[in-house]
Amino acid sequence: MNVQLINATKDKEETLLNLFQFYIYDFSEFMEIDIEPNGRFAEYPINDYLEKENYYTYFVSFNDSYIGFCIIQYNQNEGDKQYFSVKEFFIMKRYRRMGIGKFVANKVFNMHQGCWEVFQMKSNLPAQRFWSKVIRHFTKGDFTERRR
């Protein structure tokens, strides 16, 4: 599988903003989000993610084309343990159910060793199913699930 994670740097901000339009569109199925008068969704505040010390922002590339992104937040370091969160995770619909999302999730889990948390919206059942399968497989069933 020709999938790569590529660091998203400040010079690629426009590309990330463009991909976020598709991401927000997908979320409009689960949230009340409408487009602006200019026909676009409101700009997502991605400046928090680009080249910040506690964020790892990656483009997902498949066959040399960007098809999504993954944003990981480094939360804290307590003793020997590092804590990470999947802040945002997006694979374009055309490329879902091909194993790419699972590949990317496993890759970032392995790249950033430590304790992890992954949140999904209560209404986003596809994300819940995806993450449940990925986490169960990666941890061999050794994880804690909480609902809030």
Rank of each mutant, 00 (worst) to 15 (best):
V3F: 04
Q4H: 13
Q4I: 12
I6A: 07
N7K: 15
N7H: 14
A8W: 04
T9E: 15
K10Q: 15
D11N: 13
D11C: 09
K12A: 13
E14F: 08
E14I: 13
T15A: 14
L17T: 15
L17P: 05
L17A: 14
L17I: 15
F20D: 06
I24T: 14
Y25R: 09
E36L: 13
F41E: 04
F41S: 00
E43R: 09
I46W: 02
L50F: 07
E51R: 03
E53F: 06
N54C: 08
T57K: 00
Y58G: 04
Y58T: 05
S61Q: 11
Y66K: 07
Y66A: 09
I67Q: 00
I67T: 00
I67S: 01
G68K: 00
I72C: 05
Q73K: 13
N75H: 06
N75R: 05
Q76H: 09
Q76G: 07
N77D: 07
N77C: 09
E78C: 10
E78Y: 13
D80G: 06
K81H: 11
F84I: 08
F89L: 05
F89T: 01
F90G: 03
M92N: 04
K93M: 06
R94Y: 10
Y95T: 03
Y95L: 06
R97Y: 04
R97C: 08
M98H: 10
M98Q: 11
M98C: 08
G99P: 06
I100V: 08
I100R: 00
G101K: 01
K102W: 03
V104G: 00
A105K: 00
V108C: 02
V108N: 03
N110Y: 08
N110T: 11
M111F: 04
M111W: 01
H112S: 00
H112G: 02
V118L: 10
F119P: 03
S123V: 12
N124L: 04
P126F: 10
Q128E: 12
Q128P: 03
V134E: 03
V134C: 09
V134M: 05
V134L: 04
H137W: 00
H137Q: 12
T139Q: 01
T139S: 10
G141E: 11
D142C: 08
F143D: 07
R146W: 10
R146I: 15
R147Y: 14
R148Y: 13
R148E: 11
